[in-house]
Design a protein around this nucleic acid. Structure first.
Lengths: 266, 266
DNA sequence: CGATGACTTGACTGCTGTCAACGTGCGTGG
DNA sequence: CCACGCACGTTGACAGCAGTCAAGTCATCG
């Protein structure tokens, strides 16, 4: 139920102090290392990367990883769980900018001006790896594959954002939701989860906000898609019944988060 | 009229072959070097950067710098003129993704998968510096300031794209156009042009496409803004009469392309 | 078991897209 | 130099998608 087959993690509600060693899992043993920062980095160099990374205690649902305006010191890689990032407008309105799944990097937009333009909040129990940026920069200068992978990840983020601009700028409500679901499905698949069945960790309101739609519209579309036998939805649980047709619904050219790095099997 | 006070350039219509030396201007002498890739790179290292950069002959209006699907080998820095980037959907539709002004880098979205996901086309006579990416990567590993600046530029791009997502997802038509004009104005100012008076090198159709609006809507808004004495518009020429009020119109929180690097004075 | 928050459904309004006609400026060619 | 044609831009009429407001339902948790 809780999408977390990746890492053993202290039981959710236990407040007892957990030794950091217990949740420390080296990149080499992390099942995400084929889609995360270490891609292409060989075993010996992986140790150097490991040594700068700090595995933190899990965040509870609703906890902030950082807030809009915080000084930028580190990037974070999601290890398990999920996050949302959002901007806050002067009048207090929230604008959801993205959802982050295991293996994805948060905070790339903060490098430019050394503070976080967005806030990041856990949507469920979530653990992250903290990667101090100055260390990462030094290490990148020494490890060409690491430098390359960092640039690739940032490039991929730019491309994904461009894709989102198309979705937001040109697509109808139903196309947006379809594209969103296909994108999520692809991302889950890439992480070894079922592409046809998953739980949404975010609310309807978050989805609507992210897609530039009213939450009522999202809700209506879910029931419509269900009536058309495209999918089955039960509260947070989604089952895609006809991924192909859903893809067509999305106005095609939807390939959000499609395999960025094809290196080893799986 | 032609926004090009930056670099001497061969006369527009002359078809005679121009020696490459004639248009070769080293980064050190380029007035854009305070907002371009060389930021922070000192004089001696600038020579190394220079040596990998290839200054090409100017593109004519309508020429492609690269096309969707082309292999990725180089980034390009705009030296003078302007470009638009756009995606092409399966059905041949164009989606404008951005407009590029002097000092800005094109092609950052192509690093991830080694081909260009977008096409780039000159909106007017435009010259660019070609920067072979493999050379840039090697050099970055040697020059920490160059590596840092490259990461900053990519981070800035991500942030700008996030800003655009807010504009497209949440803003009304008038807010979008106002935000677009404020953003352009800021970018012109940064390059030493007047922030209150400039020429649009792109068509109404391009603007609408970029903002997710029908070109008719863009046209209507221009006349409305003019009637409200926010600006004066004559064909391609725009004069902003009340930047403050236009900013308010944009739904605020608009700071697209605001001063990224504040290092040395003017 | 009641309260709270998330979600669903309905009715209505309005913004913005579409279709269509018309105006305007520029380049081409006579 | 003028006339024509074309591309680009403006303006108007109308319609439809999606937002807003509002009421009602459902699940979860104390």
């Amino acid at each position: 139920m809780n999408p977390n087959p990746v890492i053993d993690m202290p039981t959710r509600k236990s407040e007892k102090v957990v030794s950091l060693k217990d949740i420390k899992v080296a990149c080499g043993e992390c099942t995400l290392n084929e889609i995360c920062l270490p891609v292409g980095v060989d075993a010996t160099d992986l140790g150097k990367l490991d040594s700068i990374i700090d595995r933190k205690r899990p965040l509870a649902r609703g906890d902030h990883l950082f807030r809009n305006g915080d000084a930028f010191r580190s990037l974070y890689a999601v290890r398990s769980g999920s996050l949302k990032t959002y901007a806050t407008s002067p009048d207090g309105q929230e604008q959801v900018m993205g959802f982050l799944l295991p293996g994805e990097l948060v905070g790339l937009d903060a490098i430019a001006d050394s503070y976080h333009p967005l806030s990041a909040r856990a949507l469920e129990t979530t653990s992250v790896c903290e990667i101090p940026f100055s260390d990462l920069e030094s290490l990148s200068a020494q490890l060409p594959t690491l430098q390359h992978q960092l640039l690739r990840i940032m490039s991929q983020e730019i491309r994904d954002d461009e894709h989102n601009m198309v979705v937001l700028g040109q697509k109808s409500a139903e196309e947006r939701l379809a594209a969103f679901l296909i994108g999520l499905s692809n991302r889950f698949q890439r992480r070894g989860f079922s592409p046809n069945q998953f739980n949404l960790s975010m609310s309807r309101g978050d989805i609507g906000n992210y897609l530039g739609l009213a939450l009522e519209t999202v809700s209506r579309l879910f029931t419509r898609f269900q009536n058309e036998n495209l999918l089955r939805v039960d509260r947070k649980h989604i089952e895609l019944l006809d991924r192909q047709r859903l893809y067509t619904y999305s106005g095609s050219q939807c390939s959000e988060q499609k395999d960025p790095q094809e290196s080893s099997g799986r």
